[in-house]
Design a protein around this nucleic acid. Sequence first.
DNA 1: TATTAAAATTGACCACGGTCACTTTTCTAG
DNA 2: CTAGAAAAGTGACCGTGGTCAATTTTAATA
Lengths: 194, 194
Amino acid sequence: MAKAIQQRALKTRAKLLDAAQAVVFEQGFEALRVEEVVKRAGVAKGTFFAHFKDKDALMDQLIGTEMNRHLDQIATLEPPKDIDSLIEALLPGMQLATRERYVFDVILRHSGAAANAEIGPIASTFARNVEVLANWLARGPFRKDIDPVLMADGVGAFQIQAMALSFCAIHNGEPMESMMKRYLEAWLLPKSEG
Amino acid sequence: MAKAIQQRALKTRAKLLDAAQAVVFEQGFEALRVEEVVKRAGVAKGTFFAHFKDKDALMDQLIGTEMNRHLDQIATLEPPKDIDSLIEALLPGMQLATRERYVFDVILRHSGAAANAEIGPIASTFARNVEVLANWLARGPFRKDIDPVLMADGVGAFQIQAMALSFCAIHNGEPMESMMKRYLEAWLLPKSEG
DNA sequence: TATTAAAATTGACCACGGTCACTTTTCTAG
DNA sequence: CTAGAAAAGTGACCGTGGTCAATTTTAATA
């Protein structure tokens, strides 16, 4: 049996990722074409698909890596002590995820991985996000009647909702910030019992 | 100026929709091909795109119509008197929306319409869903500290979340039903104040 | 009825993601 | 060093969504 993975392959993969990143930097995610990537990387088209299952897998890698890097910073912050500072911490990531409609669609598509083998960067970022949030929420001045993980799940659901609606014409351009404030006050600081 | 819209065009559109529905019935949404639709409808490919902006618009129409029909039935029900019966009312629609991964992706993509002109069947179903829900929630034994519309928005967000996670390998096959129960008890019947 | 402009339709064509049988390179075993 | 097997890479080819200049059909008007 020959060596499992060769240096050559790693270099090729790196070239592909570099080329893709360059295209995205210059023209955005939506304009990215596989043909352009392989041309810049100086490899054949087939090589691309030997390294990435499909174009979406490359997007997962590019976007997920960026989200993860961002989450690394977030994770070092102090647990927010109120809803406003929680939102302040969450907003940059949400803006990253919604800078292009196309990017948000990719994220939605990958937020629930279809199979165990397919858990990619974006899906695992979501999992980490819940961890970080749960940690924060457990330490903050929020409701105590439910599991922090459930609270975190809910915040995630409202983040998705606010991001989706930010593209929606019906809600004429209400900023995500104010939507989140409404949602999170009701979710994290309910004022009465049923 | 000639007549604004001709009978011929309406017939063609109907033929296209019929053909598409037949394909979906036989092979599911994922397998639907524009070429197959125009072949069955007996028209040229270009005609398809004169009637639908793109393949997604046809999907919007097919799926949205179905969702709307379902919502019509739901809307006639009595307001649920507890969380279990609320979930019971919501589940069939959620199962409809998740019968194929592809269908759910289409729904996600259309749940927030990109522009005023683009509010299609799926997006408007979401709007109606909030209306119906808000009505129910206002009459039910649920929290009274927030606007019913906000409550309904939240239920919608949790529906999306539960549907997305139902495809997710990390949450190994927890049924939507039990996820919804956890979410809605915490959202609609919070037991303490922050 | 003849004219004619807008509406409707056509199908050759293109763009782009993805496949696969084949070639080249790499590494290990003998 | 060599043989050979696995890994890596190649590029012609295909499927399918989408475009558009040209053609046909419709119906209002003179």
